[in-house]
């Protein structure tokens, strides 16, 4: 099995790179920082692979590493809140014409997401946007499956209220 590790790793980047970046975006509310964190996440994971660590669930492992890095980032300096990011004009996509739709989407999504409690936000996004299993989310968050199920349930209820409260976005 030649170069199996590299191949798997690069495939993982291809497959999960955007999702990890997105996860970091929701965590740190700063696009540039999220890019750095996502990149750093993959580097750390590669180092583990190179050391011979057997990674059973690559996807969950990536999220776990990203979470740890985001926590480090919190400790290093107080990261701006999602609110500051959306209101202060930090946008989450480029302003090329074809991306305008994306910016609007990102803005509305972020303005809703920031109203969710952080633990709920992570749980519902991982469950329904990324379609991870409850078991995987539990592994990532370091909680029991029960706790995660409750978070998803409450998070959805919260989100439903948030979405009901105002019209969804400029498009709909």
């Amino acid at each position: 099995m030649p170069a199996k590790e590299e191949k798997l790793f690069l495939e993982a980047y291809e497959k999960y790179g955007d999702a990890i970046f997105r996860h970091c975006c929701f965590k740190v509310s700063d696009r540039e920082l999220a890019l750095d964190l996502a990149q750093e996440t993959f580097k750390r994971v590669w180092l583990e692979i190179a050391r011979g660590t057997q990674i059973v669930n690559m996807r969950a492992f990536l999220y776990k590493v990203a979470n740890n890095l985001a926590v480090d980032e919190y400790r290093k300096k107080k990261v701006s809140s999602l609110e500051a990011a959306t209101e202060g004009g930090v946008q989450f996509a480029s302003n090329k014409d074809k991306d305008i739709g994306k910016i609007i989407d990102a803005k509305t999504v972020f303005s809703k997401a920031e109203q969710l409690d952080e633990i709920y936000r992570e749980a519902v996004l991982l469950r329904y946007a990324e379609e991870l299993s409850v078991k995987e989310i539990a592994e990532i968050a370091g909680e029991s499956e029960n706790v995660i199920s409750v978070r998803i349930h409450r998070g959805l209820a919260q989100l439903r209220i948030i979405l009901e409260k105002e019209e969804y976005g400029p498009e709909t």
Partner: peptide, 24 residues
Amino acid sequence: QKLKEFFQKAKRVQMQKEEKSLGL
């Protein structure tokens, strides 16, 4: 529907092509 739409839009937060290839 609203929840569904929300998650679909959340999923569209992505790296730009260029950023992704630079990362790679």
